[in-house]
Write a protein that binds this DNA or RNA. Structure first.
Length: 592
RNA sequence: GCGCCCGUAGCUCAGCCUGGAUAGAGCGUUGGCCUCCGGAGCCAAAGGCCACAGGUUCAAAUCCUGUCGGGCGCGCCA
């Protein structure tokens, strides 16, 4: 874009680019000699009447020089060469826009690039090879993934691919919360169900995991170990009343965990604990893999405990952690957090925060230029304390970005599906995938900005008809395939030649051509903003433009130059649809 | 109460970061298009005080302030 326009010699000016924006740096010869940075844009026009690109520099300059923008625009245009290899004309319009009209060959060149670059078309050097670690999903291995995790999975996987295409070195990681209280509660839940299978009668507490999967794990435990871990339930519940559970449910559970550990002994407890962890984690791995979500590393929290101890020690020595009311606190309030936070509970157990510190520290130590966390929006209050502790440890908090994903609400048509984790009746990611298919699930998850609440309509996602965007796009791709099959059946040949492309002249052909050349810009924009939804929207537009072209024109016409040109256009569309669909993890089916 | 996110067509949402020319799409509604490469498609119409009120600007859906709605968070939970 920069090559398209040469700026007039306004003092000592030069152009540089910053992000996706061009800057004009000029020495402003005013009363005092100083350098002024002008930010102006050369951007795509929406209305073809305004040419291909529009520049607002005259309006920006007009403000600075206190001159009429329209006059300035005319002067700038007068000093530009009237045309060159790519530019047909440059005109002033409206309040002072400088509109640039391109020669068709400019677009034809890009089409050729697409055909040559193939799946590499759209790739960028934007990231400059910088390394990024993306951590996402990281659900506690206490149960199967649900539809909320699905959104994080789809978003994270698409973002990873997007950044990779944009020139970053990307690694994906799943953090396994395999220690801590929640896991103990899982072990307890499994054991309680196991006791029931052994024939014990007991009152199942409300705050433990109740899903059917707990039964399954307990059944395995019972099958493999028979009554080896059985203890009378009276011993377990001795002195614990229903009122006590009601009044302080947390300490009620903690007591049960302690008794469970005492009654079983360390080795047996470990067996129960490990079985639950292994079974659930394996289920999560398989679920994500089937969903097309791949990780470079699965990082267990348990591995971090020594490092966490060391960091707690370090913070204490630096006076950034202190004892109060039997617990160890971090002075996060010194670093933009509202209050201090507990690192080690009164009962001696570390909080998740303590191991999280070690984990984030460890990630930065591994040398990534940037570290991205994708969290559910309900965790947003947690961000300041993580950034605080990184600052306290002497790291630059800017190296960490936390992206928040809002909740997904499921609908079946008009009906809103209620999800309740406690009862275990939540909708699992697996059941969603089974119902609507991976492609629709991936597409629906990423088609909205992640900070937007997502209404996920199962009926719509499932519909193989008119109103489902995913089928609309895939159908477009299948159509491009079919055209070439048809050509083959007719014994015809496609011969690409730049000269043939001159025969493309209709509005539909031109619009499609322009849209195809925009793909790299969409990649850049989406990558900069961490917004894969831009790709989904672009693909919708592209499919629409292709369908429109297809309906209005016959591709396999008799005239060879025109037929070849339209086939080139079709092939390029096919390629870009493929690249885009692949990026967001959706398949490009050859027939539907 | 404090903090973060959201409020745009009947519905679901883009556009907001980086202010520009008549505010865009899909669904739904209404009306057209199949001797033709797959009609799972295309074309067209109707539909908007961009939540509200101020401010900044030549120019505000976009930036600033306030108000009102909705969601989430504010634990020795994760």
């Amino acid at each position: 874009m920069q090559a398209l326009i040469q700026l007039p010699p306004l003092s000592d000016s030069h152009i540089c680019s910053k992000g996706d924006k061009l800057l004009l740096v000029m020495t402003h010869q005013g009363s005092e000699d100083r350098e002024t940075v002008l930010e102006f844009q050369i951007e795509r026009t929406r209305d073809p009447q305004h040419g291909d690109f529009a520049c607002n520099v005259a309006m920006i300059l007009g403000k600075l020089l206190k001159q009429a923008p329209q006059q300035l625009a005319k002067e700038i245009i007068a000093r530009l060469p009237p045309e060159n290899e790519w530019v047909q004309a440059i005109k002033m319009a409206g309040p002072g826009f400088i509109n640039i009209y391109l020669k068709p060959v400019a677009y034809h060149r890009v089409l050729e690039t697409i055909l040559v670059d193939k799946e590499r078309y759209g790739r960028h050097s934007l990231g400059n090879g910088k390394s990024v670690l993306i951590e996402f999903v990281s659900a506690n291995p206490t149960g199967p993934l649900h539809v909320g995790h699905g959104r994080g999975a789809a978003y994270g996987a698409s973002l990873a691919r997007l950044l990779e295409v944009a020139g970053y070195q990307v690694a994906c990681e799943y953090y396994i919360n395999d220690s801590g209280r929640q896991m103990d509660i899982l072990a307890l839940s499994v054991w309680l169900r196991y006791l029931e299978l052994c024939g014990e009668t007991l009152r199942f507490p409300t705050k433990v995991y109740q899903g059917d999967y707990v039964w399954d794990i307990a059944a395995t435990l019972h099958r493999e170990h028979r009554d080896a871990f059985r203890h009378p339930s009276d011993q377990l519940f001795a002195g614990l009343t229903e009122t006590e559970e009601h009044n302080s449910p947390d300490s009620f559970i903690d007591t049960l965990i302690q008794r469970c550990q005492t009654l079983l002994g360390a080795a047996a407890y470990r067996t129960v604990f490990e079985l639950g962890l292994t079974v659930i984690l394996e289920d999560i791995r398989r679920d994500l893999q089937e969903f097309g979500v791949h990780y470079d590393q699965w990082f267990p929290e348990s591995q971090l405990v020594p490092a966490a101890e060391a960091l707690l020690e370090k913070l204490t020595q630096q006076g950034l952690a202190y004892q109060k009311e039997g617990a160890l606190w971090f002075r996060s309030s010194l670093y933009d957090d509202e209050k201090d936070r507990v690192l080690r509970r009164e009962n001696g157990q570390m909080t998740y925060f303590a191991t999280d510190i070690a984990y984030h520290w460890e990630k930065l130590q591994r040398g990534f230029d940037h570290v991205i966390n994708i969290w559910g929006a309900d965790h947003h209050g947690y961000i300041p304390r993580i950034k605080a502790v990184l600052a306290a440890l002497g790291a630059d908090p800017q190296r960490l970005s936390v992206l928040l994903v809002q909740f997904a609400t499921l609908y079946r048509g008009k009906e809103r599906l209620q999800m309740s984790t406690r009862s275990g009746e939540f909708v699992t990611l697996r059941s969603l995938r089974e119902e609507v298919g991976n492609d629709a699930a991936r597409f629906f998850y990423v088609q909205r900005r992640c900070e937007q609440h997502l209404n996920f309509d199962l009926e719509l996602a499932k519909s193989h008809t008119l109103d489902n965007p995913i089928y609309y796009i895939q159908y477009g791709y299948a159509r491009t395939i079919k055209v070439f099959r048809r050509l083959q059946e007719q014994g015809g040949q496609w011969e690409h030649n730049l000269a043939y492309l001159q025969t493309l002249a209709t509005p539909q052909e031109r619009s499609l051509l322009i849209l195809l050349t925009r793909y790299p810009e969409v990649i850049a924009s989406a990558a900069c903003a961490y917004e894969p939804h831009q790709i989904a929207h672009y693909l919708r537009d592209l499919a629409q433009q292709f369908h429109s072209f297809y309906e209005e024109h016959r591709i396999l016409v008799e005239e060879m130059p025109l037929r070849n040109a339209r086939l080139s256009l079709t092939a390029a569309t096919q390629q870009v649809l493929y690249n885009g669909l692949t990026l967001i993890g959706v398949t490009a089916p050859e027939e539907m």
